[in-house]
């Protein structure tokens, strides 16, 4: 009976209470391993931290007031700036790469996707150390440019925000590319010819047909990309250096080095709220004007 119901649901026919049987395990896991700790973190952030540990008997908003300190404000702004910059570059690259990719043969597409996935075949820490060999003052790029006589003193390509952007962009670009690629491949090829017979030149087809129909996919990818940029840890820690800290690293320091869980909780909640805020704005854009009110 259950397998029968599942089979029908796969065909798009409504199924009854048995849906919970299938969703249940995943929901329980989310509840136990994610939502419950998140809830506890929020509660902890409202307690003061004492030398003896978390004082669960008294309540305070001091942890949140501390976030208003200019240092943390700067960290938050930097995290947002770096994250948005990576998303911006990814979005700018997405259409050229996606259109090229969707035009390749099936084998070409499989290989190209493999190349774009390759940053994920290497551990984030190892990958970041790899970047230091390329981006450092005596790294591949600077030595190359110097030997060509293009620069006198090395460019600062890491231990700053540039390093974080370079370190995260290749891997996180995949999440903008994949949904857009799928959407481009799903477009009815005749739409292009229909537009052209009506007088549209290729760039007009792109702007008036291709982009409006694939923009929701691009925005979905951009949202995933942005949240991953906000939460990234290893690359910012290793390529950003001590003067260019981002929120995730500060939260790590406060929680695991200072063992100040209440303030660490406040940092985590602040990060969540800011990220969610941006996601909701982006989703508002998709549903409103940009998506063209697509149904």
């Amino acid at each position: 009976m259950i397998s029968g119901a599942a089979g029908r649901s796969a065909l798009g026919i409504r199924l009854g209470g048995s849906v919970w049987l299938f969703l249940g395990p995943a929901l329980l896991l989310m509840l136990a391993a994610y939502l419950a700790p998140l809830f506890d973190t929020t509660i902890v952030s409202l307690h003061p931290n004492r030398p003896t540990g978390i004082d669960r008997d008294s309540w305070t908003i001091a942890n949140y007031l501390r976030l208003l300190d200019t240092y943390y404000g700067e960290v938050l702004l930097r995290t947002l700036r770096v994250s948005l910059l990576i998303t911006l570059f990814s979005v700018l690259l997405a259409y050229p790469v996606g259109v090229w990719l969707a035009g390749l043969g099936p084998r070409g597409q499989a290989w190209a996707i493999l190349v774009y996935m390759s940053p994920w075949f290497v551990n984030a820490v190892v990958k970041s150390f790899g970047w230091t060999l390329i981006l450092g003052n005596r790294g591949l790029v600077n030595r190359g440019l110097q030997s060509l006589g293009l620069i006198d003193s090395p460019l600062r390509l890491m231990l700053n925000e540039t390093g974080i952007v370079i370190g995260l962009l290749p891997g996180h670009f995949l999440f903008v590319l994949l949904p857009l690629w799928a959407a481009l491949k799903g477009l009815d090829g005749n739409l292009r010819w229909a537009a052209m017979t009506l007088g549209a030149r290729p760039w007009q087809v792109f702007l008036r047909v291709t982009v409006p129909l694939t923009l929701p996919a691009l925005l979905a990818g951009a949202i995933i990309n942005f949240t991953m940029n906000m939460a990234a840890f290893a690359a910012p820690a290793l390529l950003g250096g001590t003067r260019t800290r981002v929120l995730s690293f500060i939260a790590y320091q406060v929680n695991l080095e200072e063992l100040n869980w209440p303030f660490g909780g406040a940092l985590a909640v602040a990060m969540l709220v800011v990220t969610l805020g941006f996601v909701m704005v982006a989703q508002g854009l998709t549903r409103g004007g940009l998506g063209g009110g697509r149904r």
């Binding site: 009815d188 005749n190 739409l191 010819w193 229909a194 537009a195 052209m196 017979t197 009506l198 007088g199 549209a200 030149r201 047909v209 409006p212 129909l213 063209g292 697509r294």
Partner: peptide, 20 residues
Amino acid sequence: PIWARNIGLVFQNYALFPHM
């Protein structure tokens, strides 16, 4: 080029622009 031919073409699957 196609856009310079002044031809009306009706496709088997209609190919209407779904976002318009």
